[in-house]
């Protein structure tokens, strides 16, 4: 039988320090707007900040464990002469340490990147999560993924892969939405 759980040693491998730390104070997280929530630090909110960008949001939910996140992106429309890019990405949500840490690492990786680069990274991360613990065997890709390679340990466990992919799926969906809205605006103009 396949062994989908883990020994103590494997547990440490999965919950690497990077993951535990990122989960405790994840980047790009906007505190939820509800009684008792701490005030947003540094004044970070889900409000649109870049007027020249097209904003979009995507809600992601993992019904088995309740991980949930709303990912907000602002994508520049290329009129600045540069490729369309993710100018801002923040999120609201809650969940297990794997989902929270993955969201945090994803934000660090794609913030400011062109849409093309961000989609390329998402693909590489997807390959990593499909590697069943083996990793992607590609040094360039590993270098590009940076801190995200710590999720290699998670890819061994089918029950947890969804947690790690939650943020990336949300990023892809919200960027796709922004691009669609951009096209619509162009048509109307």
């Amino acid at each position: 039988m396949a062994d989908f759980g883990m020994s103590d040693q494997e547990l440490e491998q999965m919950y690497q320090e990077v993951i535990l730390e990122a989960a405790r104070d994840p980047h790009g997280r906007v505190p939820e707007d509800r009684p008792g929530s701490p005030a947003p630090h540094d004044g970070v909110t889900m409000k649109v900040e870049h007027g020249y960008c097209v904003p979009a949001e995507s809600q992601q939910f993992n019904p088995t464990c309740g991980d949930h996140a709303t990912i907000h992106v602002e994508v520049s429309d290329g009129t600045d002469g540069r490729p369309k890019a993710i100018r801002r990405i923040v999120w609201q949500g809650d969940g297990c340490s794997i989902s929270q840490a993955s969201l945090s690492v994803m934000v660090d990786l794609v913030q400011g990147r062109s849409v093309e680069e961000a989609m390329h990274l998402a693909e590489e991360f997807h390959s990593l999560m499909e590697s069943r613990g083996a990793g992607i065997q590609n040094e360039d890709a590993e270098e590009e993924l940076g801190d995200a390679v710590v999720f290699q340990g998670v890819s061994k466990y089918p029950m947890r892969i969804k947690c790690a992919l939650l943020g990336w799926e949300g990023m892809k969906a919200s960027v796709a939405q922004a691009l669609t809205d951009m096209d619509k605006e162009k048509e109307q103009a």
Binding site: M6, L11, M14, Y15, C65, D67, G95, C96
Partner: peptide, 13 residues
Amino acid sequence: GVHPHDVGQFIDS
């Protein structure tokens, strides 16, 4: 402070 999914993983180990 610990999400149930993480608790379950630890307990399973």
